[in-house]
Design a protein around this nucleic acid. Structure first.
Lengths: 341, 341
DNA sequence: CTGAAAGCGCTTACAG
DNA sequence: CTGAAAGCGCTTACAG
């Protein structure tokens, strides 16, 4: 029981397929109203739904936007995806989603599949190893771009394509300054993977700003860009600093390079009986929506996550322009987690 | 600069297009090794990427799975999407995602677009008004199914299609029993929209179980299925119950029909100076991952969200079977938010 | 095993 | 304004 085809509609309306196509799938060449009405009526009566695959083949544009994230269940990514969704809808693009679980093979596979599906653009969210992809995937992207495909990265720019780039370094420095201004004098850092630039930029921005004031972190530990990565890093950090419940000293101020890690850290400390901000203070980065109802409220650098997703789509749709870079500033927000009593 | 085509590959390998197709896009009919090698080499050298749109047209299966959720940034949905992603990947299906923002027009639009893209199956997550769609969308689904499309709902079943159905009523009753067993005697309910069955089932399951013990809620309020919906409902509830900080009486136990609402409620109460579980107790439903790091820890009914997503995909892929229903039990988990001192 | 050819459902110059 | 026809890039009976 095959679907109703344009041909069916044309036949019922007593016109050619070309005419039916013109009235139904809007071109500038508008047939006479009488004809147009007949076609529309026939389409409605038959329940005609255009075959997007066939249209894509005939046109050479699929209306598909490929979106790759590390983990759709991570609030950082799901917020971005929300923005991408909103912008795609208004642009009448459909989004093809891949959540890679931070597996590079899966990411490569997803890119291939998206290219096979001839997505008009591919958006890569989430930073990757030192700003470059492997040879193979880079070759694929090269051909893809040569054939008119657009690629947009959220995070640090690749050697090609457009990018929406949060000002990680600068904002982290501002955070450090704000923390110092609020009275903190002892710091520590929970960093992410050394190979990931977002992680390195945030860490460096923070540490360098401290340096300018003659300060240096007491200790630095690192973990994966996940809640559990922050959790285990926080345990090591507590040991290194010999933090004990109610130690009475001034609490050290820890900078975790993502909110998700900061939340994991707080959980780890709570399990140890350590209270934030009494025994240890902490700040994160991103301002994921989850933070809104987290206790204690978390000091962080707010990034307009949804807007970042929307801007990525805007870049993906700019066929006129070449590769562009858009910088996104972060907003330092001081909350309870770094409050000195 | 058009992309490399199968024809190009065939030419370079000195074989027919048919042969190239057979070796590259696996059929049972395997050409001789010599030929096959030549084709594969040519494809590699040219950087051939099959055009999935053309394949879809020629085959009559797109390998696309349409997924519709209310809000991708809501942890309930993003967890489900994670499961859908995982299962789709192993099944080598691509996911077309739509986040409707709970807007019915957008949902209808998304269904149409997915059908236009000839998705092999469409998964609808998130309950909708009283278990039926409007006429128009139902007609579209009818034709879609007649043409071989599968539809799967997560939540209450529609009049057609398969469904993954959490045992809302039963699990809510179990929750009520557990709460009573733990010493609670006064209850209240924060419900969702009256038109949504998931909401009604959970509320009824809970209230009926109380009834069996001769108990009845002191008050019921309701709000949207969102954090803010829970937030405002909680304010009304606190007023109705005249809750004040440290009132010293036994805290009433509130059942919010979703975790997201419960979290909003706790936030509202905190703003009023009310402490959970000292002044008021609360339980939710779903066990969203966010709960893990929430304070106080929230009593809830755990649903295997990711697994639900995976099972929906499994149902979507069962071309053999007719419409199926799978029930998913919930697990009552008592935590601090309902702890009686 | 291999190839010529038709067909999948559209769009779009090109004529009229 | 309207139509006949070619073409988009594949797959798959049907012959050989």
């Amino acid at each position: 029981m095959p679907a109703v085809t344009l041909q069916d509609v044309a036949a019922r309306a007593g016109v050619s397929q070309a005419t039916a196509s013109r009235v139904l799938n809007g071109s500038t060449r508008i047939p006479g109203e009488g004809v147009a009405d007949r076609v529309r009526t026939a389409a409605r009566e038959l329940g005609y739904v255009p075959n997007a695959q066939a249209q894509a083949l005939a046109r050479a544009s699929t209306g598909l936007l490929g979106l790759i994230v590390h983990d759709i269940a991570d609030p950082y990514f799901s917020s971005i995806v929300r923005g991408v969704q909103a912008a795609s809808r208004t642009a009448r693009k459909q989004v093809l989603l891949a959540s890679t679980d931070r597996d590079f093979d899966i990411e490569r596979e997803s890119v291939s599949t998206f290219i096979a599906h001839r997505a008009d653009a591919i958006v890569l969210a989430g930073s990757r190893q030192s700003g470059h992809l492997d040879r193979e995937i880079e070759g694929e992207f090269g051909r893809y771009r040569a054939n008119g495909g657009r690629v947009v990265v959220i995070g640090q720019p690749l050697a090609f394509g457009s990018a929406v780039e949060p000002e990680n370094h600068f904002a982290s420095a501002e955070l450090a300054d704000a923390l110092v201004a609020s009275g903190h004098t002892e710091f520590a850092v929970i960093g992410g993977p050394a190979s990931i630039r977002t992680s390195v930029d945030r860490r460096n921005g923070f540490v360098e700003a401290l340096g300018r004031r003659g300060l240096t972190p007491l200790v630095e530990v690192s973990g994966n860009f996940t809640r559990d990565g922050g959790h285990s890093a926080a345990q090591r950090l507590a040991a290194a600093l010999q933090l004990t419940p109610d130690h009475g000293r001034k609490p050290p101020c820890v900078f975790a390079v993502t909110d998700v890690m900061a939340i994991g850290a707080i959980a780890a400390w709570r399990e140890m009986g350590l209270i934030v901000p009494r025994d240890v203070c902490i700040a994160g980065f991103d301002d994921i929506p989850t933070l809104r109802d987290h206790t204690p409220s978390l000091t962080t650098v707010a990034l307009p996550l949804e807007e970042i997703g929307m801007r990525a789509v805007a870049l993906a749709l700019r066929l006129d322009a070449d590769d562009l870079r858009e910088r996104v500033p972060g907003d330092v927000i001081l909350r309870d987690s770094t409050r000195l009593s």
